[in-house]
């Protein structure tokens, strides 16, 4: 599952572009720095491939292996 550290995101949309499942989308909400940040449109389709985490310049996304803690 992906874990987004909202404050780190600067709204560049790289993750949205490269998510193979196309389940990431910039939301309407701004973080404290004023950037729109992404959210999962359909969490079940996430296969934890970590592509979003890899391409994110800010390291705002972490992937936890295994089930929900």
């Amino acid at each position: 599952m992906i874990k987004l550290n909202e404050i780190m995101c600067k709204g560049c949309s790289f993750c949205v572009k490269y998510c193979p499942q196309h389940i990431l989308e910039l939301g309407k909400e701004r973080n404290r720095k004023g950037h729109f940040f992404p959210h999962l449109t359909d969490g079940d389709k996430c296969v934890s491939c970590a592509i979003c985490a890899v391409i994110c310049p800010e390291g705002a996304i972490e992937i936890e292996s295994g089930e929900e803690e």
């Binding site: 550290n5 780190m8 600067k10 491939c49 970590a50 985490a53 390291g59 996304i61 992937i63 292996s65």
Partner: peptide, 18 residues
């Protein structure tokens, strides 16, 4: 895959542009 933030960078936003 698992992906954790590296330890040598701070957990506050960098100074670089979006």
């Amino acid at each position: 895959a698992e992906y954790k933030r590296a330890s040598s960078i701070l957990s506050t936003p960098s100074g670089f542009c979006p």
